[in-house]
Design a protein around this nucleic acid. Sequence first.
RNA 1: GGGCCGUUAACUCAGGGGUAGAGUAUCUGCCUUUUAAGCAGAGAGUCGCUGGUUCGAUCCCAGCACGGCCUACCA
Length: 503
Amino acid sequence: MSEPSSNSQKRSSSSLIDVRLKKLEELVEAGIQPYASGFSPDIHSAELKSKYSGISETEEISDVVRLAGRIMAIRILGKASFMRVHDVSGDFQIYLGRDIVGPEEYNRFKKLDIGDIVGVTGTPFKTKTGEITVLVKELILLTKSIRPLPEKWHGLSDVEIRYRQRYLDLMVNQTSREIVVTRSRIVSYLRNFLATRGFLEVETPMMQTIPGGATARPFETYHHALSRQLYLRIAPELYLKRLLVGGFDKVFEINRNFRNEGISTQHNPEFTMLEFYQAYRTYEDLIKLTEEMLSNLALEIVGSYKLPYGDREVDLTPPWPRITVKESLIENGALKPHEIEDRNAVFIKAMEMGISVNKSDSLGKLLMAVFDEVVETNLWGPIFVHQYPVEVSPLARRNEEDPTATDRFELYICGREMANAFTELTDPVDQRNRFEEQVRARQAGDEEAHFLDEDFLRALEYGMPPAAGEGLGIDRLVMLLTNAQSIREVILFPHMRPEKGLE
RNA sequence: GGGCCGUUAACUCAGGGGUAGAGUAUCUGCCUUUUAAGCAGAGAGUCGCUGGUUCGAUCCCAGCACGGCCUACCA
């Protein structure tokens, strides 16, 4: 699309590339296929090392092993050479001797570059320094690399390049690879945990005509054939509940949500959410399930309930404490017990604290504004904050004793919201009233207020069994378990502005 | 969206109003057990972009681009 000169590939880099392109030409002229196929390794580096760790230095092993990987270091010592090769399980060393492969082949090997992918066939032996090494009988070039890799001491640390060219980051940074593997293990564990408890994994629409289930600004798109506006989903909640109406009593979905909001170390426009719903249960049951699921997950992934996070530690040994929103506000000293039910008193307090609030805000919204400002970041946790105000919980069931509160909790770990759950509102009349309240808020300018979903109300009118549901942010959970300080470290290809010259 | 900081060789980084330095990588030569191999030599840069100030800018100033951190909204 753009001319080579406007490409991000700078001139000097292209001179290094030119050297390699010349080598590539020479290979082709010599009749060598620089992008070969058909070589199958029969062992990985980790297995090689463990299998032959017991051999002695002088021992000659007749086993022939086949390995493949990317050359990461080359040490030429005249008529013999060592190379370090990376494969998926780690790295291994190969030994090339001129007297073994012959002078012609040996000279060809000396022209290999760091970054080239090779297949080797040979026998294992132990070097003077005790490293299991492959004595190469045959080496074939599988892929010629024409771009230089980052240097061997410091590797690649420029975060912009690490995120934009994740393939390069994964090639040279082991911790980046480990996070990918850990994330996969976490998702598998959660899937298995729920599946063994009878939950059914489902997929619901990513493109929705009415974006529902959360308070957030949606991304908009357009369907030409239907001539209508569509939204990328902000949550799967209303669809999963429709499945409860339909008769499934335990369902879950692990998938992407999209929210048209700011980007930060805690936020990516698309993020992964686990949502699960269970009929004939309450949020009390979800508290127990969450404790069990996440504490066992920590044992599985980290090997302990106690996790290092930043320069602190968080202890996931169950059970975890609980506190109501109102209790937390009083305990924190933000509000006095007599003020907590008094909208005007809370409004004045919020103003005094410099929190941006509106005259029209309900008591519940004001309480949450104060909570977000002064309580939330101090909740190192793990802790369940529960009994959220009804005005900010339009899909949650009212508490039996306190109709201004809902049977809802949010789980906080390391000062961050990890999960949000509640006993579901199943009363179609109450649900309609709450939606209408949201519509009024939207008309008053609240871009994040819920849309009214008439079909969802129709489903509730047929009757949804009593149920409880929860949403759990997977990216933040992976951050917690990998001690990552930025969400971009746990998302393979995080959102970035387009790179100049490559659009 | 706001504030602060950054952008110099392919990579990691120094430097600083008089047209640029190191290590790694690359290239050449020597070297048969190295593993940050070693020794000798060489090449490599529009100092993010665009303007301004100046005899002269990579350095000072402004704007822009991209990124990072904090902050705001949210999960």
